[in-house]
Design a protein around this nucleic acid. Structure first.
Lengths: 202, 202
DNA sequence: GTCTATAGCTGGATAGAC
DNA sequence: GTCTATCCAGCTATAGAC
């Protein structure tokens, strides 16, 4: 029976709320989802939602706070690969599988909207994005050194554009269609040195 | 002085509401913008908003109803160009300039969200998107025929991916940064036949 | 810790004066 | 046609019982 404060149970409750809220926010949007609906979906009462979270925005932020460690791991796992282009593509693949989740467009759209209103959320998103950005930029710089990537590209701007394409894929996601093959084609070609059958002028 | 029902004045009023609403919806979102705020920004009273529009959603739809003719013109203007790849890039450029509007990410995000709730809006968006899609797909098919575009590509899927990248550029838009050069690089290379310095096997 | 009940507020849409 | 005033639904967040 123990006394109050069973941290495991509390963590499970919190997680149930976050999971239920993520699905509802993605489907209906943040403002159109009431705390009562979240509570019902998570199997508890609306009062309890505010016991575990200070307010509704804190519930939304919690969804994305889980992503920061995930991004760090992903970057670390691929930072040291021998072939920088292969590492970039592997990272893109890993991020893009999530785009097959039917909730992906809804949640992306909602995070863009809410990040403009909640500075604390904006901070969380900025950090997660920055981790991926640094990871891509470092690999691009290395690819330029090894000659695999077009030296005319700026690593940071190029990293940014990889993220742009991934965002596009998320936004237009379709659960029946794996975006990875086309994403690989697009990024591989985007990075590569120009085709130059005639040799260059030097 | 004329009698009631001056159609010009009415059209101007409607347009003022639509313009004011577009800016507010893009900045704050649809649900966080009240009819009273729209009315104030448009210089009339909240009651009048509902005189010109059946409800708030109709105001939102009106923003996008203006886009359909614009898209048709764009497609028609480029359908007959001699060089299909050049026409595709010109169309992309034309769409992408709009991405430099600081309101672009907000309005894109909002239309995705609202199209999921309002079937009439979804219809409007579907049509506009379809016009562009057909335009791109026809040019891609022609490019394959002329040998300028990789015959391994499916025209419709490829058209879809061009739109994916444009969406990404809209979402990550920055008024200080012209997305067109990188967009051109990305799409040109995406479409082209594989580099093949050794000649193909045939 | 978790519930029920509700205070307090906001905002869409309408009614009716002018 | 346009305004002011307002009705009413629905929501966040809290209070207090258990």
């Amino acid at each position: 029976m123990a006394r109050t404060a069973d941290p495991e149970r509390a963590a499970a409750r919190r997680e149930a709320i976050v999971q239920a809220a993520a699905a509802l926010f993605a489907e209906r949007g943040f403002e159109s989802t009431s705390a009562a609906e979240i509570a019902k979906a998570a199997g508890l009462s609306s009062g309890s939602v505010f016991y575990y979270f200070a307010d509704k925005r804190a519930v939304f932020r919690a969804i994305f706070e889980r992503d920061l460690p995930t991004s760090r791991e992903l970057v670390d796992r691929h930072a040291a690969g021998e072939d920088p282009v292969a590492s970039i593509l592997a990272m893109v693949d890993a991020v893009a599988v999530e785009a097959m989740d039917p909730l992906a467009p809804g949640i992306l759209v909602e995070v863009v909207r809410q990040a403009g209103k909640d500075p604390e959320l904006a901070q969380v998103i900025t950090e997660t994005t920055a981790v991926l950005h640094e990871g891509f930029a470092a690999l691009i710089a290395r690819g330029i050194d090894t000659g695999a990537i077009d030296p005319a590209l700026d690593p940071r701007e190029t990293a940014q554009w990889i993220q742009v394409v991934i965002d596009g894929a998320f936004l237009n996601s379709d659960p029946d269609r794996d975006p990875r093959p086309m994403l690989r084609r697009m990024i591989t070609r985007f990075l590569s040195r120009p085709c130059d059958p005639a040799g260059d002028h030097a």
